[in-house]
Design a protein around this nucleic acid. Sequence first.
RNA 1: GGCGAGGUAGCUCAGUUGGUAGAGCAGCGGACUGAAAAUCCGCGUGUCGUGGGUUCAAUUCCCACCCUUGCCA
Length: 372
Amino acid sequence: MDRLADNTNVPAAWFLVGATAVGKTAVAQHLAERTGAAILSADAMLVYRGMDIGTAKPAAAERGQVRYFGLDMADPDEPFSAGVWLHRVRAEWMASRDLPCLPAGSPAGSGLLVAGGTGLYVRALTQGLDVPAADPARRSYWQERLAREGLPALWHELIARVPQAGNLLADPENPRRVIRALEHFDSHGALPAGWRTVPRPRLVGLHLPRVSLHARILARVERMFGDGLIEEVQSLRARFPAWGRQSHTSGSVRTVAQPAAPGKSGVGADDIVSGDGRPAQAGSCEGLACTACQAIGYAEVCDLLDNRISREQAIAQIAARTRQLAKRQETWFRHQAEVTWIEITPEEPVADMAARVLAAWSEHGPTPIRLS
RNA sequence: GGCGAGGUAGCUCAGUUGGUAGAGCAGCGGACUGAAAAUCCGCGUGUCGUGGGUUCAAUUCCCACCCUUGCCA
């Protein structure tokens, strides 16, 4: 292959990670415009066409200045996954002969700049994914059995096949992981041993104090409504009628305005909760790829459009879910990667942040990526 | 102004037949290899409105006051 860092013979890229709403996009854009680098978005929601406002996708003006990868790769009703993302991104990259190679030593030259907050996508890019996908039919088979028989039954099935699954699986109480392991076994006859022993890539990240980040998140949510988030969801629903036919906001989180506390002897409390009309099986979207319609902002606006919640509730819930996402992202990068954090403040000019990011990149060098 | 209801965790509320309290949400921490903006796990000390009184002991009973709210004026 010919996408090589000049001296090292290893493909690599400059990574900028961090929680949602810290300002990765602005800094990446700033740097790309000045270096001629292309930007690869490592974000699981920016891949969907038509979902622009709610995902804070870089605007057309910005995209005209810089070559972007990883945006608008699929329609919201297409099944998508980290694996699809990785294959497509690799293919696009290999096909782009005109893209500049990474400069040796100096990040002030051009190259590939990866910006995003989806840890799994970053990992896929730096480590690759182990084996081809499993058969989707197997997934639905196990999903049905989970619904019918419960998690312990699936766990027994898994242990029967892979006695040491307890050590291979990080989180046996997580139905998705158990199902994933089962479908993986069905397709490949074994579980990959490397699931829990991944090297941590060295990255550069932006970090804001929690309070500042929360303030930014709320401001951004309100701006999204001003920018036409509701209209965007309406047009998506016009294109995909199954979208938002029922509440997508699942029960675990999200009900900011709780009707009444279900006390031990709380007569009527349960009635109020269930009467509120949210059966809320997360992501039951009748044929639609659920990922997109579960997306933060989109699920809540559907509830708003169907009069299940008020505008104020929608804003509060979107902000809360975004905060929770941001925390999970921080946790991921804190522990799953070796990140050099650039501590920023809300007032700091983008150019200053960019300069500090550049300095960190210079110091540590680019992060190797796997193109095959 | 009169009568009623209420003031308990950041929010919405339980509860204590007197022995200083607990749920949901929020928040915090953690996990994470093809659904990842997903999914899953863990974490509950707060002047129980204020000041008095009764009591071995009051957040719980009594009195006063303050605040909120509903109805009547």
